[in-house]
Lab assay of single mutants.
Amino acid sequence: LETFPLDVLVNTAAEDLPRGVDPSRKENYLSDEDFKAVFGMTRSAFANLPLWKQQNLKKEKGLF
């Protein structure tokens, strides 16, 4: 999966995202380093959170 810089994904409308980016899964296009910096946890820890908590975190970080 291709990764993009944080500033390309945060608070970006679906139509302005790079081609192929799923707007409902912007976090998947962050590098592992950016993911950890944004969410303060690994991808696996994030995946283990309840869906509502994942969505709330994504909203807080501008990735929803």
Rank of each mutant, 00 (worst) to 15 (best):
A45Q: 14
K61C: 08
A14K: 11
R25K: 14
P18D: 04
L6G: 03
K53Y: 13
E60W: 07
K59G: 06
L51E: 10
L1P: 12
L51K: 10
K36T: 14
E2Q: 13
P23D: 06
V21A: 04
A47E: 14
S44L: 12
N11D: 08
R25L: 09
T12A: 11
T3M: 09
F46K: 00
G40Q: 11
Q55F: 09
L30I: 08
V10Q: 13
P5S: 06
A37D: 13
L51S: 09
K53C: 14
E33I: 12
E27A: 03
N48P: 01
E60S: 10
K26V: 15
A45P: 00
K58S: 03
S24D: 15
L63V: 04
S31R: 06
L6D: 03
L9F: 02
L49F: 06
M41H: 01
E2V: 14
D16P: 07
K36P: 02
K58F: 05
K58Q: 02
W52C: 13
E2P: 15
L6C: 07
D32N: 08
A13W: 06
L51M: 12
E33M: 10
K58Y: 04
V10K: 10
F35M: 01
E2H: 13
V8S: 08
D32P: 07
L63D: 04
D16L: 12
D34N: 05
T42P: 08
L57M: 13
L9S: 02
G20A: 09
A45C: 10
K53T: 14
P50C: 06
T3R: 10
E2K: 12
L63Y: 07
L49V: 02
A45N: 10
F39R: 00
G20R: 07
L57A: 05
V21Q: 04
S24W: 10
R19C: 15
A14S: 11
M41K: 01
S31W: 01
V8F: 15
D7K: 08
S44P: 08
S44K: 13
S31K: 06
K58A: 04
L57S: 02
P23Q: 08
V10P: 02
P50F: 01
D7I: 09
L30R: 01
K36N: 14
L9R: 02
A13T: 10
E33N: 09
V8N: 05
A45E: 15
S24N: 13
Q55C: 13
R43S: 04
E33Y: 10
K53M: 14
L30Q: 01
